[in-house]
Every structure is written in structure tokens, then in C-alpha cells.
Design a protein around this nucleic acid. Sequence first.
DNA 1: GTTTGATGTTGACGGGATACACATGAGCCT
DNA 2: AGGCTCATGTGTATCCCGTCAACATCAAAC
Lengths: 203, 203
Amino acid sequence: MYPVNIKLMNKKTYHHGNLEEALLTVGMKEAKASGFRNLGVTHLAKMVGVTPMAVYRHFPSGENLKAAISQQAREELARRMLEALENEEDVKRKFMATGREYIRFGLEEPGLFAVAFIDCDASPQREDNPSARAILHDAILDLCNEGLVKPAELESVANFAWSIVHGFAMLASGNNPFRPEISPSVIENLLERSWLGVTQFSK
Amino acid sequence: MYPVNIKLMNKKTYHHGNLEEALLTVGMKEAKASGFRNLGVTHLAKMVGVTPMAVYRHFPSGENLKAAISQQAREELARRMLEALENEEDVKRKFMATGREYIRFGLEEPGLFAVAFIDCDASPQREDNPSARAILHDAILDLCNEGLVKPAELESVANFAWSIVHGFAMLASGNNPFRPEISPSVIENLLERSWLGVTQFSK
DNA sequence: GTTTGATGTTGACGGGATACACATGAGCCT
DNA sequence: AGGCTCATGTGTATCCCGTCAACATCAAAC
């Protein structure tokens, strides 16, 4: 019934050695190229040169694998936000850079951005690290420390700023029937209005 | 090879009579109940009491059917926005009501909201009618006519207001890792900040 | 009353997710 | 050394889904 000798074909070893990481890597590559469309178990397994069932030794289900890739995408976004922050000192410039990078990510990496916020059956096992939410929250905390935002309003300000960049990125990224005009000036205008809403609300 | 006499089983007639509309109706019901997860050709066909292939007489592909249901969901959103506007006279109250209803839709109908903005291979054949975008645009146009917004800024203001409500609804609806706290006061605070950003920008 | 075209049905094929049984091989125990 | 064990892969089978080609039904046009 079963063949006595397995043909290893073009594989060097029977065991892959680092399948989990390899799956996440090709998953990110596919996500970058085509969003959530090619993140199936069979397809990713084929990319890595492994049988579909091998995937289940590392992820309980295809949905879990997708959730893990989604988390990787969110962490990539967060990493880029951190990078954009690195060279800014002024709190306003930090705040603006954070939002600008968030939007830029949505525009330049629509595939990753879509996957980052895909609605998934499975939840990630660990917290995002780095976390885009935490980064934005810290930026607003800085504004509190500078006296530009009342500590009592920290949460509502964070909601506000977050909603703006996330909403714009969502609408501008991918194939949306409500896609807005996109230009650097449109984005800067949006960020300026955001700054106004954040700092001038309770005068 | 093929049976000479078809058993009609529990069907009254061989032809359904209104299959296209029926598919959209059950599609909306399924979307309301579980988002995009049960919008497959086979499933919807079964719901309507018809063979999967019958669907293709009305929609070129399953993706097209999904796009049609997505459009229905967007139009439902737009209809609710219009309803919320009906009893408001003041331009500010109209503006606020529009945004509030958008967010309320995201919170109360997460399934429909997700489907409304699903990333779909196929595009809708006709324009949305009514269109949520047009309704929001009109609300800002009113602000122009009242002198509260400069006509030259109409587009950027629309972008701004739209991004806020869409972003918040997206983050607050469904299973998002960045889901914010949700309460009426949080929403009113957001709308007030939006109003400020819309009207006070160019003073 | 026949023809015809719109609308449904069957059956088949290809592909995806995943359950179960089996294979491989590196490291540990004796 | 020689063998046991367990994590990790493979093979096969099953079920479901989307879709094609061929055939069936029926109402309306002629």
C-alpha cells in the first residue's frame, strides 16, 4: 500500500529544520505580493517545498497560520513607525512622523496592510512586539508630558489620532469603492488637521 | 446517463422566478449574521433551494456575487445615514448625525460593515445608490454654503471627516487586535473633535 | 402547436483543508 | 555501540467548494 522507499526528489533532507520560520517568511512575501489571496496552507507548503500536512505540526490550523502572518505584518508596520521616529526630536514632529509612516505603509504596502488587519477566526498567541498601538500611545503620552494634551484626555485623543490615520490608510489602500485622491499635500493636510484636533480641543 | 425524469423534491417549480434578488437577500442575511464567511456560491445556493450552477445564470462568478452583496451592504449603510439625517435641520447636527450613524452601523452591524468594505476581485457594475460617500460629501457641501468651510477645502475636509468615522468604525467593529474602548461619550468626543478639525482649521 | 431562449439540474474535474496512519532521524539512555 | 522515543514530515483519503459542459424545463413568441 505504502511505498517502501520514499523518493526525496529535490529535497536535501527529510526534515526541513526551520519550517515555522520559513512559512512565516514566504507568507510575508506572498502577503506583500497579493494580500490575503495566497495564504492558504497548501500554497504556502508548496512554496516551502513541504507537504501541506507538515504545516499542522507548527500551526493548529490554516486560520492560525494566517493569524500569525497577520501579526508579522502588523509588527512590520510598527517597526517602520519606530524607524520613522528615530530621527525626530520635537514632539509634534514625532507625532506627525508616526501618522505619516502609518499612512505611507498603507499606500506602499497595500498587501501587507490588508493582511495586517484581516478579520481572522484565530487570535494571535502573543502580544504584538513592537506594537503600533503602543507606539502611537507613547507619542500622545509625550504630548501629555509637554502639557499639550490633558492626561484625562489621553485615551480619547489616542482614539482620534488613530482613527484618522487608520481610516485614511484603509480608504486609500487597495481596491476601495470610496478611494480618495492621494497626494503628499492631501496627507500633510490630514496630519495638520489631526494635530489641531489633538492639541486645540479643550482651549 | 442522465435521469429522464427530474425529481422536483421539495420544490414547487423548476424555475425559481426571482433568483437574483433571492440570492442578494439571503446573502445580506448571512453577511449580517457572520460577515464574509458564508457568502460562497454553494452555501447561498443551498439557502435559496437551488443548485450552485443556477447562480451562474445571474452572476458571472462567485466573486461577482460577493461584490454585489458588498454593494447592497454599502447601500444599506447609506440608507441608514439618510434616515438619521431626515430629522435634523442644523448643518452641524446633520454633520454629526451622519458620522454618528456611520459609526453606529459599524458597531451594530459588524457583519454587514465588514462585507461592505471587503476587498473583492470583482467590481460592482453600477454606482452605489444611495452612496455613503455622496451623503457625506453633501453634508460638507452644506457647510460650504453656510460659510463654515472654504470651498477650496471641500475635498480635504471630506477626506478628513470620512477618515475619522471610517477608521473608528473599522477599529471598533469586529475582531481587531487594536480595538478601542467603546462608549457613547467616546463617540461624541470623536465627533466633536472631527467638527473642530473641519470648521476651525483655517482661521 | 412548435420553436426558442432564459433559467435550472446533473455529473465531473480540480483544488483546498484536514484527519489518520506511517516514515525518518537526531538525541538520549543503557 | 545499539536501540528507543518523539518531534517532524509524507501519503492517502475524505469532504467541501467553484466551475465547466451537457442536458432539462417551461413560458412566451411565432
